[in-house]
Amino acid sequence: MSRYETNVVLYRLKKDSAFRDRFRADPGSALADADLTDEEREAFVRWDTRKLNDLGGSLHLLISIPGLGGH
């Protein structure tokens, strides 16, 4: 489980608006180079925040990504 990579992606989604735009347009393509497991990648693509949290994704990042966060 690459908890670090999951949080790197979440942090980029919060801080990098261009990356966030690419992710929102085509999550699979935006994450093509990310070192994620299949389970993590699927959770990102489906934007399953509970699953991402269960996989070690930071709660504070998950709730605060512009346009995607919330709880």
């Binding site: 919060k14 608006s17 709730i63 605060s64 990504i65 512009p66 346009g67 966060g69 919330g70 709880h71």
Partner: peptide, 9 residues
């Protein structure tokens, strides 16, 4: 500074 800040930001 957080662009598009939501929640407590």
């Amino acid at each position: 500074v957080q662009d598009g800040a939501i929640e407590f930001d």
